[in-house]
Design a protein around this nucleic acid. Sequence first.
DNA 1: TATGAATGAGTATTCATTCAT
DNA 2: TATGAATGAATACTCATTCAT
Lengths: 190, 190, 190, 190
Amino acid sequence: MSCPDQSSPQASAPRERILAAARALFAEAGLQAASLRGIAARAGYTPAALYFHFPSREAIYAELLRDSLGALRDALADARDFRAAAMALFDFYAARPQDLSLGLYLGLGGLAPRGLGADLDPALNALLLEAMMPLTREARALGDETLAAQAFAQVVGLVILAETRRLRLFAPEARPLMQAHLDALLRGRA
Amino acid sequence: MSCPDQSSPQASAPRERILAAARALFAEAGLQAASLRGIAARAGYTPAALYFHFPSREAIYAELLRDSLGALRDALADARDFRAAAMALFDFYAARPQDLSLGLYLGLGGLAPRGLGADLDPALNALLLEAMMPLTREARALGDETLAAQAFAQVVGLVILAETRRLRLFAPEARPLMQAHLDALLRGRA
Amino acid sequence: MSCPDQSSPQASAPRERILAAARALFAEAGLQAASLRGIAARAGYTPAALYFHFPSREAIYAELLRDSLGALRDALADARDFRAAAMALFDFYAARPQDLSLGLYLGLGGLAPRGLGADLDPALNALLLEAMMPLTREARALGDETLAAQAFAQVVGLVILAETRRLRLFAPEARPLMQAHLDALLRGRA
Amino acid sequence: MSCPDQSSPQASAPRERILAAARALFAEAGLQAASLRGIAARAGYTPAALYFHFPSREAIYAELLRDSLGALRDALADARDFRAAAMALFDFYAARPQDLSLGLYLGLGGLAPRGLGADLDPALNALLLEAMMPLTREARALGDETLAAQAFAQVVGLVILAETRRLRLFAPEARPLMQAHLDALLRGRA
DNA sequence: TATGAATGAGTATTCATTCAT
DNA sequence: TATGAATGAATACTCATTCAT
């Protein structure tokens, strides 16, 4: 009622304005900077105005994350084998590292297993699982379900190390590492 | 008291007291909770007092990180082959995930490529390289320097996914994944 | 719809809906909780919608108070002697302590001699006097007009002390105290 | 440690400044106006500064109430019979009606039995009981413990009705009513 | 008659930091 | 070396109210 179906063609303009501001701020300066005040200022609103469109700051993050996971699902949808799915996953987060930060809820409270407020998690976790389905499906097809987790971990590690400028102490680029990782993982399997 | 020798262990007692408080708070509740006020309270000091021992809150974090990297160096020192070094790295951060958060400066400002303040980085980066030396050395010995980066990324990814409770959506435990990763990496090599 | 007669009961349906919501909220959680937003939400309206039916939040309170004083008048109407009137007064407010809060405008701004906005007071004061008439009439009949004020004060004091859980520090129940008060007041008179 | 013994002769100056501001604001405009910001502004401080001297807004109220109950105890201490104690109680709150509002915690949340935060209540209730001891002692001496509660209720009711300008609808002055109440209560007893 | 959108002022509280003593 | 005192900016969130539609 107060939040009309989000899949409707013409979502409310202010909602989009707020989300866009949050996304931009977030990409530029991280979760910390994407405070409610910051988002409001960026969107040209009073902080109070945001509460007309979202019940809380966390709800904005959740919406952003929902969008991100939707895009991830689309990015992986076409993958026809394990390598393609894993590389799509890598390319997705390499291109949008902040989405990884959002997805892991890094940046607020450090490395704390907190999630986006306990009650939002289940739905978002389900979205993550759904988006990752091509990867897990292909891993199962190869006879080793843990391949998906290994590849996911490699993506997360590489993107975070690259983003925090630690990777370049050890290697010039992340993408070839991801490919090498997959080479090793799939050696003698396919 | 009568002999204020700076190199005496007593002289740095408050420093140690502060660091111990920071370490404890940090391990218990993450970077967020280890505020300057919190550290001061825990150490039995006034916030202002800390400024006699450290120029800023970030300097305390840097010192903590220095200690952590020293411990990491010790943990890897005895490794005689690549697998041993990589597993030591994994075990180190799996046991102290907050140190990873500190090392990557996650948790303050999110996934921002910021480091611990630009001027501190070089020294800390050198420490990190030094600590990781056994891993890079053995990777070189195997003829592929990128193996170190791949293993490091796997450690980071696994620890972060485990800590943020995302890993268990895909696999029950992290350590076997690390071993499988190394199995694949070393297959047909050693 | 086709016949928008203003005096029809339907015409004031929204008014009643709002007042009912306010009454319920108010009884459940006090003046503080009966915010305009809360009332609107409860009544199934937008906050802005209430302004078509009431000029301000205070006007809603005033209406509530008007109703309450009407009910009080009915409660005292049948009293045939002083004791009966006083006990009816006690029972009324003991059963609806929030109405006392409303009547005294306690709860917003504390014990401030403010009334319900200066211009509303005269009409409401008249209603209060009218409702209390049986009590004052019987007091006059007993030859001491101040008896009404004394009994009123006792009611107010007992209800407030009971409601704020202070009374039980001194006595287990309020009603016997009211009766004892009246016993004393009327001793040797009737 | 952070709050040195309050009975020490030289209490900290800012503490007193803050309490004085709170008291003044409180007396002038009620609990509502005595917000933390309001108190800070009145005392010539930044809101944040208050937190150096009090852990919370409620702690300031509690301190005010503690002082008030101490003054009440002193006011009743010399009373040698029931009437004297009751009149002292009346005179105390008639002269400082806001202290009654504070004591009953009226004004925040309306007529809600909330107290000053659950954990503060016991100590403050004990102070209230201690201050009221002369009244309860004399009531017991007269063979009717409920006399204390009746007199207390009369005081509360009279002061509140006077302060909210409701009393003058029924009687010109409060004090003679209190005396009449006591006359009735004690008739044929002493 | 009602809504969607927005405001400006307000709420309590926490932060790292500074400075006179 | 340490404290008491204070700041300014920040945090998320709620309030009654207004206004164009």
